[in-house]
Design a protein around this nucleic acid. Structure first.
Lengths: 194, 194
DNA sequence: CAAGCATGCTAATAGCATTAGCCCTGCGGA
DNA sequence: TCCGCAGGGCTAATGCTATTAGCATGCTTG
């Protein structure tokens, strides 16, 4: 048998590509598809991953890091409302360009699995990025957590509804997202005064 | 064989109960579990439903209608900011009390399936309820759609993150949700002035 | 050059949805 | 009252999924 020359990274990369290309969300990822793409029998994958859930978490890590990377790049050199708008726009753009990966990034880490500590760390990075942006609003420290949660909720919710075709009306979705950003900017500023 | 006396409604009701009681989201619903609960072999269920997806949509319909019912009840007799806060609170309360059903309510209807027209109609009712609440803000008609989307996104996103234990910090989540409602009330009011 | 480990394989198990085809039970009409 | 038939249950079978066990082979290192 010619060795396929796989590795954990190669398998994860294949999975990432499959999720990214195939329509539909990340829970449609199947070992059969990965194995076929790799030109390998399904059980062979277990030499590189410990389970499907493990693979999912690895994919989530890749997706989450890329999301954070792009978000950070979009906000660098900006601050205040400008940074917040750029952050929201970057997140939405990532979710639109890579819907499968965006949803893949949402898997929660296993509490007892040490390998998913990286995933938890990446998730923390994402939250920390939002917090960093919001620090430009001079919020009282006790309000920062609230603001982070409000911003995350709003952007995440919008992205999900948009992806699920939850916006039936033909009205311009871009404009609605702009309205969302405006509400967030104003709202966070108001939180800073309270 | 003693007849089990099933019916479509009975099967759907069983599925609703299973989703509601079992932890975890709605996509863990299994025909095996429903059949076991009904005291019947799995294929027998097909006399009452056409597929698992069909059952899922039926459950979604029940869940969505209940969500709308509770939301409507919470907002009756209120208007403006008061109504908006009550609406958000009711949605979150439903999602917390019935996490499985809340997630079940999010399945999107099949475009070509006539049976899921009811589901689409219920979804429309939900959106319409939000719109009705927001009409109390004297928004320009062209902004109403934006406001509806902003509110839906924010509340939905918050509920999802909360359910996914996405709020790592120990800070009071109730207070954060209150901040979200405040941001929405202020934001919608600002939208009305723009 | 030899040994061993990494990496592939096949076979088997178990859970899932779905379809086909059978059979009994209870009800309606003659 | 009896006969028929349809509704509603069943078993068997198919094909998909993940996962585990155990085996073989080839690369690599001592």
């Amino acid at each position: 048998m010619a060795r396929a020359g796989l590795s954990r990274d190669a398998v994860v990369d294949l999975a990432v590509r499959l999720i990214d290309e195939a329509p539909g969300s990340a829970d449609r990822l199947t070992l059969a598809a990965v194995a076929a793409e790799a030109g390998v029998a399904v059980p062979s994958l277990y030499k590189h991953i410990t389970s499907l859930a493990d693979l999912r978490r690895a994919v989530a890590l890749v997706a989450l890091r890329e999301l954070v990377r792009r978000s950070a790049a979009a906000t660098v050199g900006r601050s205040g409302p400008d940074a917040l708008r750029a952050l929201g726009t970057a997140i939405r753009a990532y979710a639109r360009e890579h819907p499968g990966l965006y949803s893949a990034a949402q898997v929660s880490p296993e509490a007892d699995d040490p390998a998913s500590a990286e995933l938890a760390a990446a998730a923390l990075d994402a939250v920390e990025l939002v917090a960093a942006v919001l620090r430009g609003f001079a919020l009282p420290e006790t309000r920062l957590v609230d603001a982070v949660r409000v911003v995350r909720s709003a952007v995440h919710g919008f992205v999900l509804l948009e992806r699920a075709h939850g916006f039936g009306m033909p009205e311009d979705v871009d404009r609605s997202f702009d309205a969302l950003l405006t509400v967030l900017v104003d709202g966070v500023a108001a939180l800073a005064r309270s």
